[in-house]
Amino acid sequence: MKPESYAARRRSYTWRENSLASSDESEAKKFDWHLIADFGPYLARYRLTTLASIVLMLLYTAANLANPYLIGVAIDRFISHGDLGGLAVISVILLAVNVVMWQAQYWQIWSMSWTGQQILYHLSADMFSHLQQLSLSFYDRTQIGRVMSRLQSDIDVLESMLSSGLLSIIGSLVALVGIIVAMLVMHVGLALLTFTVLPIMFIIAAFWQRHAQRSFRRTRSAISMVNATLQENISGMRVIQSLAREDRNRAEFDDLNAYNRDTNLEASRVAAFVLPLVEIVAALAIAL
């Protein structure tokens, strides 16, 4: 009779046995917004560069929004009337706006990346100091590989968020508000007609967020289990070879590795699902 698979056994019991997993790796647990406040002391150390990044982001967004407006002015006022002098002036202004946009984006990305790396440096140092202060019982009941996963993969995710993700979200929100204001100023009726698709967008976003959160937490748990298993097998290789368990351990790891692959494929499917729907709704808004 084939023994119970390693991945199934881990999924059934690991969450109760491992305090690190049971504390914050629940797939159904809601996001705790109070965790964002924990970054406050780290951001406060570099508040000037953070503020500069925000200002540069706003400048880039304003220049990006000015581009289509200037192109519209060039077409409506100068090209349609054959005014070459006015077209030359608006072309120079458009070129200057694009140079400002390029410089603002460059320095915004650099300054936020620098700030993010500095924050992660202090965060990693604090995490390492915290690990040294934990009791021996913690390491008795917690897999070292899972701690390593926390220090490596999770820090990489934070690096991506701090370097580009956070300001990208803020920039997109500011751009969205600017587009809405510009549409209302240009034509209220057409703008309100276009806004009729917004409830559909909110429904899609809510549906995607619920499934994406569960999928990405599952991938986080899976890679943590893979790292823990690798650490256990590498550190215990002498025992494994002395007991001739190479084939069994390889089969168990293959089973767990397949689970990690499947969870990542599922997360990829969830991520790929939302963009076509957004494009369809955007096309519907243009058609209206």
Rank of each mutant, 00 (worst) to 15 (best):
M1Q: 02
S5A: 11
Y6P: 01
Y6A: 00
R9K: 06
S12D: 15
Y13F: 12
E17R: 09
S19I: 12
L20H: 04
L20Q: 02
E25W: 03
S26N: 05
D32V: 09
I36E: 02
F39Q: 01
G40R: 05
P41W: 01
A52V: 05
L56G: 01
L58N: 04
Y60C: 11
T61K: 04
A62W: 04
L65R: 14
L65S: 08
N67G: 03
Y69G: 00
L70W: 14
I75M: 03
R77W: 07
F78W: 06
H81V: 00
L84Q: 10
L84D: 03
G85W: 00
G86C: 03
L87F: 01
L95R: 03
N98T: 08
M101K: 15
W107V: 02
I109G: 06
W114I: 04
G116D: 09
S124C: 11
A125P: 01
S129V: 10
H130G: 12
Q133H: 15
F138Y: 15
D140V: 03
T142N: 12
T142V: 13
R146N: 10
M148L: 12
S149L: 01
S149F: 07
S153L: 06
I155Q: 06
V157L: 13
L162Q: 09
S163V: 09
S164D: 09
L166F: 15
I169C: 07
I170D: 04
L173E: 10
L173D: 01
L176E: 07
G178W: 09
I180Q: 14
L192E: 07
T196C: 09
L198H: 07
L198T: 14
P199N: 08
M201P: 03
I203W: 06
A205Q: 12
Q209Y: 09
Q209V: 08
Q213A: 11
R214C: 07
R217S: 12
R218M: 11
T219V: 15
I223Q: 10
S224I: 06
N227E: 08
L230W: 14
E232P: 10
E232S: 13
N233S: 14
I234D: 07
M237C: 05
I240N: 02
L243N: 09
A244C: 04
R250K: 05
N257L: 08
R261G: 03
D262V: 03
N264V: 04
E266Y: 11
R269N: 13
V270R: 12
A272D: 10
F273T: 04
V274H: 04
V274P: 02
V274Y: 02
V278I: 10
I280S: 14
I286R: 10
A287N: 09
A287R: 13
